[in-house]
Design a protein around this nucleic acid. Structure first.
Lengths: 337, 337
DNA sequence: GCTTTTAACGCACACGTGTGCAAGAGGTGG
DNA sequence: CCACCTCTTGCACACGTGTGCGTTAAAAGC
């Protein structure tokens, strides 16, 4: 029962043929007689022959595997992106190897080198929170493995990237709050050094400036991407002598945490305080009140990134012109504002 | 810049050695002089040598890759399971190839054979809604590829399985509703032929019987696993001449859909009608009111399934005794009941 | 009946790595 | 000075697949 996997040599032996002939027969090569082809195909079917991709990869010096590295597979955002990637790669006859860094730089590095060992045809990455050194990606590029970043990108590496218009999305979110009449608008921000977070912060600042709303640095609280950060940030904001009347959160999970803490403290939404999230995760439609948020179509991000990468793998021989795609965001107005 | 990946032959050439010697040096074989080892290791580091796993796999006749097939990667439940799988396989130095069937039987079959082509060391599967024929799994087993099913399992295949105690979880959920005083308890069920759905239905029926609550077949509505099914099912139930005062849903998404439809129709929860879900997804803590649900620890399911599979791969040579693990469920009581 | 063409298949090698065995160099003991 | 041993390295083959080229045999042409 062990290692029963049929090879072309098995087929060749049973038919008194050379394995080369079997190989050609299976690939419908012109130099093999129709009778032989028929016999080979019949036996292959009977023996459940499955070509050994490992051997083919070694021979062809390339695999049909794409590597994917994300911070956490179980996050709505990333799992939806991966779903988009899988749909594209499946159609193109590629497989994906998925790794999670668990927001750990060291693990991201190990994942990357392991994928390189597996000779992936290309890599799709969203980097960990604390990734600052990017040598591991440089190494892959040097080895000729194309990379496409999405969402959390590396600024200092010149490859294709797929992001959403964080700046613009944040701007629209905050503008919406201002136009609704909210005066003291706080921002529950993400890790400072991540580009997406900086861009959203910029959008926030820019909208304030545009509408001549004075900026108060007490109203920007830095945290991470989870609900706990939303709760902690909200707690901090409510302790201010002059607390905010509106919150723009770095993502929906943080917004939900903040909403929960606000509700616990008896605040009415959106009368006492308003909330805007970012991402349009499932939870934004489920929370009460439904959350106004910036939709970013995660599935499309994955799809686009995978398409860019596959195009580079199959066509981009030497003319590697990096393409940065910025997907549009859309403000979805619900009852939290 | 293309195909720059260093091989042991490159190293051998530069040091005027045979590649066999380099291979042994890198593996710290006793028959290689310390000086040579040092030179080899230094050059390997300098040239960014990454062992070619493809070649190693071919040579060793086994890979360090686990295949994973789920209906939909972007579902909370499955992405959390995959996260659990990845954590276990990562520690054991295995990689995972992830595929989604998109609830399509044909695609599941193609995924399975493709993974077999990639000579995965083992397979973890949760089957598609409409998978009835299981020949593709039989084929892999025949080829000596171990399989472990989780959640949505195949009854007619005798391999290790990881499920939660669906029957007992459902029983506890319905018992809770009965003890709370609800009289007409409906069940928004899943696809009839899936074992998990049948088991939950059994638990529902069993609790009714135990407490002498008359069974009304109008109160069981079959659907799928998404919010839309919850909305549709609820609609149907509210049109009954004698509508239910409590709902036990096949999962949290269905429950949320049902809650939304009930709220739209002016029903108060839990006064007019109560809801219990299944799964303890993130949304169950976010929906208003928070959903009473049966927790099933998705992460643990993935972890356990991966552990069973790895154990079978590394130890279970011929004594393949299938192990069925049934993880405990826990009723989490929140404000929807 | 001989040469030339063509059809069908086998041989050998390659991809990168690993391992049993042989071979060579150098040293030691008698 | 030779036999023997140890240390180090090279050679050859294997894994499964694919391909250029050579080889055989039969058919075709004159």
């Amino acid at each position: 029962m062990k290692n029963n996997q049929t090879t072309i040599k098995d087929i060749a032996r049973k038919l008194n043929l050379h394995h080369a002939t079997v190989s050609r027969a299976l690939r419908d090569h012109y130099g093999v007689s129709p009778q032989t082809k028929e016999k080979v195909n019949a036996l292959a079917k009977e023996l459940d022959y499955n070509p050994n991709s490992i051997a083919q990869s070694l021979k062809n010096q390339k695999t049909k595997t794409i590597g994917v590295v994300v911070p956490k597979i179980s996050h709505d955002f990333f799992s939806t992106v991966i779903s988009g990637i899988e749909d594209v790669t499946y159609k193109a006859d590629y497989s994906i190897m998925v790794c999670q860094s668990s927001e750990d730089y060291e693990r991201e590095v190990l994942n990357t080198y392991n994928l390189a060992s597996n000779r992936i045809a290309g890599l799709l990455v969203s980097i960990a929170q604390n990734t600052k050194n990017t040598q591991h990606f440089g190494s892959l590029l040097h080895q000729g493995v194309p990379i496409v970043f999405f969402d959390r990108v590396c600024d200092n590496i010149d490859v294709s990237k797929v992001v959403v218009d964080d700046y613009c999305g944040a701007y629209k979110a905050v503008e919406h709050l201002i136009l609704k009449g909210y005066k003291r608008i706080a921002h529950l921000a993400g890790p400072k050094h991540l580009t997406i977070c900086r861009n959203r912060l910029e959008g926030y600042l820019s909208a304030l400036k545009k509408y001549c709303v004075p900026f108060d640095e007490d109203l920007v609280v830095y945290g991470e991407f989870d609900r706990g950060s939303g709760i902690a940030g909200m707690k901090k904001l409510l302790q201010l002598s002059d607390p905010p009347d509106a919150i723009f959160a770095i993502n929906d999970h943080v917004a939900v945490g903040a909403i929960m803490h606000a509700k616990e403290n008896g605040l009415k939404i959106p009368d006492n305080i308003a909330f805007v999230g970012f991402g349009d995760d499932i939870i934004s439609t489920v929370v009460d009140p439904p959350l106004t948020t910036v939709a970013q179509n995660q599935y499309e991000i994955g799809k686009t990134a995978a398409e860019l990468l596959l195009d580079q793998i199959e066509n981009g021989q030497d003319t590697i012109v990096p393409i940065s795609k910025t997907l549009k965001t859309e403000l979805i107005i619900r009852l939290s504002t």
